[in-house]
Amino acid sequence: MTVLPMRLYLSKCLLFLFGCLWGGHMHLAGQPSAIIIDADTGNSIDDLYAIAYLLQQAGSRVVALTAAHFNNPDLLSYRHWNGYSTKGIRTMKISYRLNKKLLRAAGCRHYVRCVPGASSMVGRAWGGSAPRPSAASRLIIEEAIKLNDDEKLHVIVTGPVTNVVSAIIEQPQIAHRLVVYAMGGDYDPKKGVWNKAEFNVRNDLNAFDYLLNSEVELHIMPESVARQLVFPKEETQQKLARVGGKLSSCLSKRWQRLGEVEAWSMWDLALAIAYMQPSLAREEEVFTPPENRQRKVWVYTAIDAPAMKAAFWNSYLSPDN
């Protein structure tokens, strides 16, 4: 046996052993033809870190960064939301402006398209599936139609799934060409019970239900799993200062805008790292909630949070980045 086959054999053995230790199935998706990041970037902190990580790790496969809204009932009840005045607030526009700023800071604005998304949810407050066409939904359709039948467009969604679902409603034939990775909802693997009372899902329950009912390959990062990845503010700011540069400044200032928050759960970053480094997460194929069309979707049931944190900083602090 030559050296190369032995290395491949050992790698497969280690991969199998990891899966046995986790006690669950680890889904390894194929390489996408293209990646679109769809983010409600203006909502909080972790979206920016997820985007920065994906831009570094996925490289030229990221073809676009689209903006999502983060409309929620608190905007009607309180004067401020995460550092913004809620008077006349336009949440998608906040995400869009921040996306453009982030791409400039990362030096990606010339090859990663940046477009606005829908400003409101699919359907209405009482239900429905009327799409919300936007530049984002049109771009998703455009990129999916480009593909051959054996190719896939991966859409990584860190906010409500309004934009990708609007694209599917507008052009149902693209469904088999999409793989959607979404952060939202909750799932108890021991009881096999779903809970949709989560921020992203609440912001467009109609779209989330539509996606569950569709034929799209779907991977969900539940809130209760993602919250395990926590970054302390002081340590994070110190490491960003060590790297320096426009991107680090952008990430640092974003945290400062939200006030004296001493630690933050990096929900969206957990999804991004699980996507790029599947060995750091466990996925299981489970049935959709009973109120939805019964089919199987992929759900992350565990992550290695310390390893994810190290993976982010090893990537970000690398002299090559």
Rank of each mutant, 00 (worst) to 15 (best):
M1F: 12
S11K: 13
C20W: 06
C20P: 00
H25Y: 13
H25K: 15
I35P: 01
I36G: 03
D38M: 00
L48G: 11
L48D: 15
Y49I: 08
A50T: 08
L55S: 07
R61K: 13
L65D: 07
F70A: 06
N71F: 00
P73G: 09
L76R: 13
S77Y: 03
Y84H: 12
K87S: 12
T91V: 01
K93Q: 15
S95F: 01
Y96G: 08
R104D: 08
R104Q: 15
A105N: 03
G107R: 07
G107V: 05
R109A: 13
C114H: 06
V115E: 14
V115W: 03
G127A: 07
R132T: 13
S134F: 02
A136C: 09
S137V: 09
R138C: 10
N148I: 00
K152L: 14
V155A: 11
P160A: 13
V164D: 08
I169Q: 04
V180P: 01
V180M: 06
M183E: 12
K191P: 00
K196M: 13
A197D: 14
N200R: 05
D204W: 02
L205C: 06
L218I: 05
I220D: 05
P222H: 07
A226Q: 09
P232L: 06
K233I: 07
E235W: 02
E235Y: 02
Q237A: 12
L240K: 11
A241I: 02
V243A: 13
G245K: 02
S248C: 09
S248V: 04
S248W: 02
K253I: 00
E260T: 01
V261D: 04
V261L: 04
M266L: 02
W267Y: 15
I273D: 04
M276S: 11
M276V: 08
Q277Y: 06
S279E: 06
R282K: 07
E283P: 00
V286D: 05
P290R: 14
R293N: 14
R295N: 10
K296Y: 11
A302I: 03
I303P: 03
D304T: 07
M308I: 06
A311S: 14
W313C: 06
N321W: 04
